[in-house]
Amino acid sequence: MKNKELVCGNIAFSEAAIRGGCRYYYGYPITPQNEVTSYMSSRMDEVGGVFLQAESEIASINMVFGAALTGARAMTSSSSPGISLMQEGISYLAACELPAVIANVMRGGPGLGNIAPAQSDYFQAVKGGGHGDYRLIVYAPSTVQEVVDYTYKSFSVAEKYRMQVMILMDGLLGQMMEPVVFPEMVEFKGIKSDWSITGCKGRAPRLVRSLFLGRGVLEDHNKKLQEKYKKAEETELKYETYKTEDAEVLLTSFGICARFCRKAVDLLREKGVAAGLFRPVTLWPFPGDKLFKVAENVKKIVCVEMNAGQMVEDVRLSVSNPEKVSFFGRTGGGIPSVSKIVEFAK
């Protein structure tokens, strides 16, 4: 209990990134994740890293691209409108297979929307917000400690597959404080690789690019990407179940919203309803097969989200009984109350 610190989600992922060996942070201020830029600006100084307040999110993600090219651990973060601006850069990172970590502290949209918590960037994160056939590994933590844990490990996962990892949070998780234990500082010396761009001393020149002209060259490249995505799909899957063994009513939810549902499950059980919760922790890869098994004998599946119904599409695709799936959610920054979830699900 001794090493606990009380921090908000935004500081949690900032410090966890630094502990995880990230020494390059590029970002642009946006609510509700403004704690990040101010924290990084002083913390990077302390650890001998680089913080740069970029002129835009477009520049931020491209600076991350430059740092990642050299084999360094680099990240950026933003909230929904800023993440939209980064989609071009994310597509290039994916094409060039550069490991990088991007945190999205979601707010209400579309457009400038508002600054209230939301989960309406599920499609963007999971289905590919930029152009082309690519995937991101998407973690949806639901506690501040999980924010720490998944951010910390995201760099090595990104490097393992040469993929981009997105930490998908929302304004609530970014702003709320909880006690956390931070892991040890990683001594990261840079990736030793056969692809990083460092100057060609003692070796043949290297090229990192995303333009693949010539017949079939891009198709071959894409096939290679798909193969590694398949590998990630098999090994990086994470999910959590709560009281699902005898559940007749199954709630599905991700991120902060899953915590409301966990409370709802307890209240429903007090009312005699055998409720349970299935929470995907990785939104991509989506734990569809696991959900299929858990959902097989339930009478009712309720997907709860802070959007107009996005993950519910994957839930319907995953289960054998999609007609049993219903959706409950609030959009535009509204937060579904536990009592309303209980009322809907019982």
Binding site: L6, T31, I115, L172, Q175, M176, M177, E178
Partner: peptide, 8 residues
């Protein structure tokens, strides 16, 4: 413990 501020 959880602590949640109004913000913005």
């Amino acid at each position: 413990v959880t602590y949640l501020p109004s913000y913005g």
